[in-house]
Design a protein around this nucleic acid. Structure first.
Lengths: 341, 341
DNA sequence: TTGAAAGCGCTACCAG
DNA sequence: CTGGTAGCGCTTTCAA
């Protein structure tokens, strides 16, 4: 059960260098007040002994663990790993490691995870969500005095900053692209209306319409589940309109597959007869026939931002507790073209 | 920089309960040698003060951090998160948390990560891989005395146990299903031959052929990249054979999409004219037309097993340093049927 | 500039 | 069964 304690300590280094442990510590932490001579002696000894800091001891003393916790509702969610990669890349620069926990979206598990992470003395917490419907209030357990940030998750709490994609701007990107091509009748195949993201994207759509002087036609915008089947169903509806759209703005790449099926089935061609845009830039969208023009979510950047925010809070710089909105990017492929005359 | 140390310690508990810190510790750790009375007094005090163990202090004292490190080559790999979920679920039972690190497949980064994790005094390490070509030797940095296990990664090191899927058995599942349906000419669209998994799956294929008294026809088995395009290309080749196969065993679901394209393009129907099986059970395989019969990789179970193995090693039960092969599962859908007579 | 010493919160030994 | 106490490896204060 107990493990060998072979490791060399700061004391060993001090002895070899002929100085005190205090000086070694100063060198290790780049603190002032140590002579060139002492410094190099210490460095030599560290090298010679292959000394490695024991972070546990340091953590106990400093009351700071140099680790943060990340709790996700859905570790297998399609957006999760890119977000985590961003977090990891940003905090690693500060010598911080991340504990990853999965809560399966269960409150009790989130509570257990928070408590476990707190006991491990994490310096901060990121609560993350693949695709959450609406904003959320406080975490499932009190998080004490450590900073918390929400990632891909609207925050209802005034004290907790949230990092989210700019859904309004993302939608604008797609719709502006379509209008600039000359489209005036642009259909919308959206997700469920109880998603904040769906409302934001709708807002972006309407903004562009307004700016272009295009009247909003409610028959042209339909909402439903985030599925292929739903995309198919809604699109059939759209195509049966007396005056069908010449382009369709879809709010998810997965749904867009169903949209494409319905279009093709109707004997129409993409993009000649009808243009199509997706959202998310999932891996398969480049392999669609034709390759799908879509809006890329800034997942990696969001993860990085969340890490930076958390680090800033840990370092004491209170970040403005607000929404941090990260812009999306348009990925042009071959599913869009000017409308037929 | 320094944070408030509001936390209540074991000493506070001891004082309130009117006992010694030693007794509190015993209660906390379920150690024998404490009377019912003392025990309940302690429990009361813990409750009253809302005491939370400081794991850092405990770790320093016990030389054991109750955390393990997981290093992955590719955090965004399609198999990664399910593996991690398995690990997490298994080690959580033991009060262990996981540090997740991404090495991008770079040796230097793996080394840095190992060193950082060692400094954090992790109790063990799991090195994980999405889809690695062949076996690997030692980790990129010495791991000291802590146990290491490879996950989804063949091991060339006699001292490091590896958890891998049973590719032979998985292939057998698919091919036996096909032969039991009556197929005798079964084509193979495989991945690159330098992958261990590809060779194993080929072995499974040949085993079943042998058992069924079907002659191995080298013209029927083709290998190439793990892509859709390659599946398409190889299948066209297969279909131009003087005596084309009545079924195709594909070694990845992604490739199978290309295979299906080639079949349909040729005017053949799945499964009426030709049966098709995939491998991996990726999320999209159920949405193929027709839904794809495929072999599911036991990713979650593999993660669990790796966690268990690691925990056993940490607890001192030296695990047999060998391959731990986890069986696959056949997912029957609609892309397979008896051959036409 | 240096180092002696006091702990951080906990566990484990050992004497009562 | 109980509790006093040493000490895990480190940082930090403070006096020299």
């Amino acid at each position: 059960m107990s493990r060998p304690k072979s490791s060399v300590t700061i004391l060993d280094v001090a002895r070899l260098a002929g100085v005190s442990p205090a000086s070694v510590s100063k060198v290790l932490n780049d603190r002032p007040g140590v002579s060139k001579k002492t410094r190099s002696a210490v460095l030599d000894a560290i090298e010679k002994l292959n000394y490695q800091t024991n972070h546990i001891a340091r953590s106990l003393r400093m009351n700071r663990s140099f680790s943060v916790g990340v709790i996700t509702d859905d570790i297998e969610g399609v957006f999760t790993t890119t977000l985590v990669r961003g977090i990891e890349d940003s905090v690693r620069e500060w010598g911080i490691n991340v504990f990853l926990c999965n809560s399966y979206g269960k409150v009790e598990l989130e509570r257990d995870n928070i408590e476990a992470l707190l006991a491990k003395q994490v310096d901060g917490l990121i609560l993350m969500n693949g695709f959450k419907v609406t904003g959320r209030g406080l975490p499932a357990a009190p998080t004490g005095h450590i900073p918390v940030v929400y990632l891909y998750q609207y925050s209802d709490s005034p004290t907790i900053p949230a990092v989210i994609p700019d859904d309004v701007q993302g939608a604008r990107l797609a719709v502006e692209h379509l209008t600039s091509l000359g489209h005036r009748r642009i259909g919308v195949v959206g997700g469920p209306l109880n998603y904040e993201a769906v409302n934001k994207r709708l807002e972006g759509y309407r903004q562009v319409l307004d700016e272009q002087g295009i009247a909003f036609d409610p028959h042209l915008v339909l909402f439903g589940e985030w599925t292929q089947a739903e995309g198919y169903r809604l699109t059939r509806q759209l195509l049966e309109l007396p005056e069908p759209p010449t382009a369709i703005f879809t709010m998810s790449d997965l749904t867009a597959i169903g949209v494409a099926h319905a279009i093709v089935e109707k004997g129409l061609r993409i993009p000649v007869d009808i243009s199509l845009t997706g959202f998310d830039n999932r891996f398969f969208s480049r392999n669609q026939l034709p390759p799908l023009t879509t809006v890329e979510l800034p997942l990696y950047e969001m993860g990085k931002k969340a890490g930076e925010l958390l680090h800033a809070s840990i370092a004491g710089e209170a970040p403005p507790p607000q929404r941090h909105v990260i812009p999306c990017r348009l990925v042009l492929r071959e599913s869009t073209a000017p409308p037929r005359k």
